[in-house]
Design a protein around this nucleic acid. Structure first.
Length: 287
DNA sequence: ATGTCCTCTTTAAGAGGA
């Protein structure tokens, strides 16, 4: 079974990249974030295309921002829209949907960005993450927490740790929230597979950041123990960030149990991938 | 280079968000 998570930064804009990618990689389960589309518009846009490829669809979208989805070829049961008990900002936002797919409780999450550490949005982010922890703790044992988590787990997940001092995504409380998920038994399966390599999932559109491989690893798949033990491959589909009209995020891919039907593509990082180290570029502001 | 992309709206240039 192949599971992917991808922040597409508008599914409407990404259709010319999403559909060929589905046909190439043939993931069994796809978690999408930042669909930026209301549910009825999503269904009108992609319902037939996805059904034709064998996917059932669970949606939690809104008009303009946010928006998450799960596509599944291996069952889509007990769908929960939203994260029960999560705070809003101030109103509830479309940042979570979960379902049982192939016996695993799969969460597609778009964690609040946090903006700046002194902001109300940052407090919202931490409260939202605390709710996530509680939901996972009370949920089924076999679980995959997937999505744009908006936390770089360690300094190795940044192109230049010094550029992020004082920024969100790296603060101790955010990393503690991630540690609290690990304390429930969740494992970062991509980092386990590539313990010492440079692995990013997001590169700012500006200033040639992707071309220079100046990015962050903020999109994760966190697997409970029995699921993590089934992982045969885990990588970042960097090709999806290249070419015309890409998202600013690349898909994170995990294969369980057996060889996939779809192309695996060049696994990222390549064997020569080096750990992130201090770079000379500045962090583009305003992200 | 405050450098890009995507959203919306007083629909055509600006504002907000990432």
């Amino acid at each position: 079974m192949r599971i992917a998570t991808w922040n597409v930064n508008s599914v409407k804009q990404r259709v010319p990249r999403l559909l060929p990618w589905l046909d190439q990689r043939k993931p069994d389960v796809v978690c999408l974030q930042e669909t930026k589309l209301a549910d009825d518009a999503f269904t009108a846009l992609l319902g037939d295309e996805l059904a034709g490829r064998g996917y059932e669809v669970a949606l939690n979208g809104e008009l303009q921002w946010n928006g998450v989805a799960i596509l599944s070829k291996v069952g889509l049961d007990d769908v929960v829209v939203g994260l029960p008990g999560a705070p809003g900002f101030p109103h509830p936002e479309a940042r979570a949907v979960s379902a049982t797919c192939g016996g695993i409780r799969v969460h597609s999450l778009y964690v609040p960005n946090g903006r700046t550490p002194d902001s109300d949005h940052y407090k919202y982010k931490l409260a939202w993450l605390a709710t996530l922890r509680d939901v996972v703790e009370k949920g089924p044992t076999d679980v995959l927490v997937c999505g744009d988590i908006n936390i770089a787990p360690a300094d190795a997940d940044l192109f230049d740790p010094e550029a992020y001092i004082g920024q969100t995504h790296v603060t101790a409380p955010e990393r503690q929230a991630l540690a609290d998920l690990h304390a429930l038994g969740l494992r970062d399966v991509v980092r386990e597979r590539w313990p010492n390599e440079r692995v990013f999932t997001y590169w700012d559109y500006r200033a040639g950041m992707f071309h220079k491989d100046l990015g962050m690893r903020i999109d994760l798949q966190l697997a409970s123990g029995a699921v993590a033990d089934r992982v045969k491959a885990a990588w970042v589909d960097r090709l999806a960030r290249k070419g015309t009209g890409p998202s600013d995020h690349a898909p994170v891919m995990v294969d369980l149990d057996d060889a996939p039907d779809g192309d695996i593509g060049p696994m990222v990082p390549p064997p020569s991938g080096k750990p992130a180290k201090k770079g000379s570029a500045k962090l583009p502001q305003g992200q």
